[in-house]
Write a protein that binds this DNA or RNA. Sequence first.
DNA 1: CAGTATCCGAAGGGATACTG
DNA 2: CAGTATCCCTTCGGATACTG
Lengths: 121, 121
Amino acid sequence: MYERKIPLNLNCGLDLIGEVLYGKWKMRLLWFINQGHKRPSELQRKIPDASRRVLTIQLKELEDHELISKVIYPVVPPKVEYSLTDFGKTLIPVIGAIGGWGDEHEERLRSLILKRLDSKP
Amino acid sequence: MYERKIPLNLNCGLDLIGEVLYGKWKMRLLWFINQGHKRPSELQRKIPDASRRVLTIQLKELEDHELISKVIYPVVPPKVEYSLTDFGKTLIPVIGAIGGWGDEHEERLRSLILKRLDSKP
DNA sequence: CAGTATCCGAAGGGATACTG
DNA sequence: CAGTATCCCTTCGGATACTG
């Protein structure tokens, strides 16, 4: 049985959603899958900055958390498709709100983030 | 000048909001500050699982990102108060949506998270 | 095409003790 | 009360090469 070394907090909604959405590319994966980009190679093309390994890992986590489901077609070459579960679909408006806020304040955010990095260590 | 070793992605709203909200306790800090819990010791009491050091760091980051502002009263013992900026206030509905989704699916999430941890390594 | 194995560095965050 | 300084370990994610 797995034992986390760093304590897990599951006290409130913010903790809980953190557990399923943390991971650098997860929200984008959900977003693109929702838009109909279902195959791993497609997602990889949509998110070229991510390594294939990490995409696979995060897709697996999303699947374990029942936000997406996976269908493997027994053909050569292999074909795989992901789709949102009903549960996963309920998250889309939330991700929309998050991304919407980010888009709305895009320039300001970019400048604040870069300013902070410049003055850091 | 600071240089990130791990690439920074600032391509879309989801990246940008990630930069300012990543950090284990940041959303909760904003939430509690919004509810009128302004002093560090108060926040510490609200979030006992976090160490004082990390709270200080994350408060500083929120301040650098102009989501909160800090007032230091020149008294002994020291007194400090944080408040949301107008910019920070625009985030509250988003955090509400995030936490709301988490609360709404609380039981299911908790069980999924724990199940995944159990079967992990 | 999809996924796995290995290796490694970066960054987050916890504990503790300390200062003003 | 508020904040800082160390120290250290966990976890995340990147690069690359490989298998079915």
